[in-house]
Simulated scan of single mutants.
Amino acid sequence: MQFPESWLRAFCNPPLSSEALADTLTMGGFEVEERRPAAPPFTKIVVGEIKEAVQHPNADRLRVCQVDAGQGAILNIVCGAPNARVGIKVPCALVGAELPPGADGKPFKIKLGKLRGVESQGMLCSARELGLSDDHGGLLELTGDAPVGADVRDLLQLDDVLITIKLTPNLAHGLSVYGIARELSALTGAPLQTPAIEPVQPQLDDKLPVRVEAADLCGRFSGRIVRGVNTRAATPAWMVDRLARCGQRSVSPLVDISNYVMFEYGSPSHIFDLDKIHGGLTVRWGRAGEQLKLLNGNTVTVDEQVGVIADEREVESLAGIMGGDATAVSDDTSSIYIEAAFWWPAAIQGRSRRFNFSTDAG
């Protein structure tokens, strides 16, 4: 289980240093296997806004950008990123900045220089150049409300610490940030902050019929229909960042929300494209020979020892483990069915290994 310390402290914030907090968890049975910074060291990198971007006179792949970095004067910076355009805010390394060490282990220092005859007064940075991810397809675009000139380390909380806990099988309640916060509160006496979650009143009377045939597989199955969703919306940057610090890449808004709730509260869920479900759903044990193409692209064959969710035509999901490709949400999805169920642990354990993969939900 990997998570950022700042997320844990949002629920329980004892007066302990980062190291002492890790020691407390370890002595409480939650072995902290690793602590590492959210980002490698770098200096003098601030928020810059591109005010102008024109073609370099001597290079097809370069642009000359006028950048407001909050320094009192507009900076002239040559940039080769394909997404360098007017209006976006990006990390700007000022002259004298030090970027994270490269392959040689030495920091990369930014100096005043010329690129193909044009002076460059700094450098606009990608996520990879800051050591935040392997993405080097373009500049790291910051949110529109990022204050020009603000220190990027402070803005993105890059001095946060990522904690990895090695859990034993009897500590499954530690597979969520809130679950670990409960333990930390019990160990230290620091108050546990439990956010109020107000019930969402339904605006629709629509229901999807669900039949649970196997009570030894599923103790409770609940779901809700939501219509008019916009799957092309952007996941908020703060959610993308928290997921990334849990080792989870951003996929799409619906998938990201589902994953976020799982990491925060330990409650896996699954989102179906409602229009791809034929009739209702049946929760049952599999039947010998039934096949299912999963979201990871694999096609598996189930039997009577594997729980499934099926519609009137075919199996649509491996119960509690992974959804199927046939009912997956896409950019064209407009109506969804959100499922949240309690699966008996004995009905889930070991099933993923049969198919040579594991999932966070499982």
Rank of each mutant, 00 (worst) to 15 (best):
D68L: 10
V95T: 11
F108M: 13
A73D: 14
R36N: 13
D104Q: 04
V46P: 06
D135M: 01
N83A: 04
R61F: 13
P57V: 04
R36P: 08
R128G: 00
A38P: 13
S126I: 05
R153V: 12
A53D: 11
Q66N: 10
I77A: 10
A84I: 05
V46N: 08
S120K: 03
P57K: 10
R85D: 14
P101S: 15
N83F: 10
V148F: 12
P82V: 11
L115M: 15
D145K: 04
A39Y: 10
G102Q: 04
L156C: 13
V148H: 11
A53R: 10
L62E: 09
C79H: 02
C79A: 06
C65W: 01
V64S: 02
I110Y: 04
L75M: 14
T143E: 15
E129H: 01
V152M: 07
V64D: 09
L75I: 08
R128L: 11
A150G: 08
I74F: 12
G105S: 00
A39M: 11
I45T: 15
L99H: 09
P147F: 07
G117R: 05
R116P: 01
R116D: 09
V118D: 01
L112N: 01
L94N: 01
V148A: 09
E52T: 13
P147W: 08
K111N: 12
P91V: 00
P100N: 04
L130P: 09
A127K: 06
V47S: 02
A73V: 14
F42W: 01
S133R: 06
A127T: 03
A93P: 00
G87S: 15
S126A: 14
V90G: 02
D104H: 07
L75N: 11
D68E: 08
L142P: 02
N83Y: 10
G80V: 11
I77P: 06
P147V: 12
V64Q: 09
A69R: 00
P100C: 11
P40R: 08
P100K: 10
V118I: 15
I77E: 00
V118Q: 01
P40Q: 10
D145N: 15
C125N: 09
V90D: 07
A97E: 10
